[in-house]
């Protein structure tokens, strides 16, 4: 537990020592603003809510989260610090979890810093703040899913570029799993139950419910299991790499 905290603290502070944190937060805020106001037509809709804002989150995360997660392991492997880290008396799981938590807390911070949007809609009208809070929590859990996928992909490769591309592609598959264009491919020859299974793997179908303000335990559990599964996979990959 103590080691988990130490690893998280070190990772998190390294985001801020390098310029990564500031660039990421700035980009996240600018892009979420652009998406919300220009593409999402926040004003034109004439409704005081943040649905256009949250609706774009899966796409925003698709390329911003891998930019954070790609360095989790690749950088350690490239610079050789992995050897230092792995020979310190800590369990692999506390290292994997610590790194994940740092990235997750960091995206949580970026998400929190979008609060001016929340103030704006409250100024303009009377939004359902419960819905907005639920969406924020849901979005954060979805970001956790993206990071866990990214962590696993980063553990696979020494190259951050490869880690980025792999995570973006795998995350895209997770988003698209609920899309008609993916489901149509399977529809003709796959039993309905399997089709439901594929669709239920989608980040999007789980997130869409959340972004409408329905924070069901099932959706949160879904993201928690994605996180758990990919972190477990990360531990396995890290252990396997150690054998070679």
């Amino acid at each position: 537990m103590n080691h988990l905290f130490i690893v998280t603290k070190r990772e998190l502070s390294s985001y801020f020592v390098t310029q990564l944190a500031y660039v990421f937060i700035l980009m996240f805020l600018i892009l979420s603003g652009v998406f919300t106001f220009y593409i999402g037509d926040l004003y034109e809709r004439g409704q005081a809510d943040l649905r256009p804002f949250f609706g774009f989150h899966p796409w925003l995360y698709l390329f911003l989260v891998p930019a954070i997660s790609m360095r989790l392991w690749s950088e350690e492997r490239k610079s050789g610090t992995i050897e230092l880290l792995m020979t310190l008396p800590m369990t692999r799981s506390s290292i994997v979890l610590g790194k994940f938590l740092a990235a997750w807390l960091f995206t949580g911070l970026a998400l929190t810093l979008t609060f001016p949007l929340w103030i704006t809609v409250n100024y303009l009208g009377n939004p359902d703040n419960g819905t907005i809070l639920a969406s924020y929590i849901g979005s954060w859990f979805m970001a956790g899913g993206f990071i866990a996928v990214g962590s696993c992909m980063s553990a696979l490769s020494k190259s951050q570029v490869i880690a980025f591309i792999l995570s973006a592609v795998v995350c895209l598959l997770f988003i698209m799993a609920g899309f008609p264009m993916v489901l149509d491919i399977f529809e003709a020859w796959v039993p309905l139950r399997v089709l439901d299974g594929i669709a239920s793997l989608s980040f999007l179908s789980h997130f869409q419910a959340i972004s409408k303000g329905v924070l069901s335990l099932g959706d949160i559990l879904y993201f928690i299991s994605v996180i758990a599964a990919f972190l477990l996979a990360t531990v396995v990959v890290v252990e396997l790499k150690q054998a070679n």
Partner: peptide, 19 residues
Amino acid sequence: IEAQKLIGYLPEGAPAYEE
């Protein structure tokens, strides 16, 4: 972990968190 507690190790090239 018990073994690693007893060891001090300088890996080749002395890698460190440079930032």
